[in-house]
């Protein structure tokens, strides 16, 4: 009976005591032939982004049946992404040579496992649950590409691009397990939550794995939200663009004149 508990540690900055939290809503599910009830507890409602936000940490811990391996997958909702691709022009100059559309792709995709995914799950199971980059590669549609080899090449580049932005990662051996007094297996993982992860809802899925199959799974949601002035400014930029434009120009003009006055008084400018 695995239990998923997502705990968000707080980031405290010098100028603020703002808390950054995580929403965890546990949903019990049935998987495979195992009958189990999942429970979860949330320490915080959600991750809040204020002016001093610089990322956070997310911990996932709970109980599982002894002898099961675990996979933790954190993803954002799937959508399509348009990116510029570089290619050689005239055999020697690297230029943007067009755009590629990546469909059925999450903006955020992190997978952690107790052991190497290929050692604990069959290819079919990985594909069925879209666990790991090879499975994601089959799940994603890329256009325009001429053949599978080209698709594979651009998917690799896509992962490199996302890893560079710290929103895609896949690693193993970082989920700690131990046996408790009741003979249950406790598991725990703490991972950095990158500040590059955009506001929105994220899905955390924990898979209990045995004999190359997923035998149980549990899901929870993590909500990342802008608050305070950050939210107000982002909203104004989108909903009142003319006023936002005038404000930006006004502040820039004011700052320019203001500094000029300071220098004038100080005799720095002339």
């Amino acid at each position: 009976m695995p239990e998923v508990r997502i705990q968000k540690s707080e980031v405290r900055k010098k100028l603020t005591s703002a808390l950054i939290g995580i929403v965890v809503i546990a949903i019990a599910t049935w998987a495979g032939d195992a009958s189990a009830m999942l429970t979860a507890k949330a320490n915080h409602d959600h991750i809040t982004i204020d002016f001093f936000y610089h990322g956070s940490t997310v911990s996932v811990k709970g109980l599982s049946e002894p002898g099961t391996d675990l996979v933790v997958k954190i993803t954002s909702p799937e959508g399509h992404q348009l990116l510029k691709k570089k290619g050689k022009v005239g055999g020697m100059l690297w230029m943007n040579v067009g755009q590629l559309k990546f469909e059925n792709t999450p903006n955020f995709y992190e997978v952690f496992s107790t052991r190497k995914i290929e050692d604990i799950l069959s290819t079919e199971e990985m594909d069925r649950h879209v666990i790991g980059f090879p499975a994601l590669a089959k799940h994603v549609e890329i256009t325009p590409v001429e053949n599978e080899a080209e698709k594979a090449k651009w998917f690799d580049e896509f992962v490199k691009f996302k890893e560079d932005s710290r929103v895609y990662t896949s690693s193993s051996g970082n989920i700690k397990t131990s046996m408790n007094a009741d003979g249950k297996q406790e598991y725990f993982i703490m991972t950095d939550w990158p500040y590059q992860a955009q506001p929105g809802d994220y899905l955390v899925t924990v898979y209990a794995v045995k004999d190359l199959k997923v035998v149980e799974q549990a899901t929870a949601k993590v909500n990342v939200e802008q608050v305070g002035m950050v939210k107000s400014l982002a909203g104004m930029a989108k909903d009142m663009p003319a006023m936002y434009g005038f404000l930006s120009i006004g502040v820039a003009l004011g700052a320019g004149f203001g500094v000029s006055m300071v220098f004038r008084k100080g005799g720095g400018a002339h």
């Binding site: 930006s248 120009i249 502040v251 820039a252 003009l253 700052a255 320019g256 004149f257 500094v259 000029s260 220098f263 004038r264 400018a269 002339h270």
Partner: peptide
């Protein structure tokens, strides 16, 4: 946006001389 500020500051400084 920031060039607006820098060029205001710079233009003012140059205008004064």
């Amino acid at each position: 946006n920031q060039i607006v500020a820098a060029s205001t500051s710079g233009t003012y400084a140059h205008w004064k001389v």
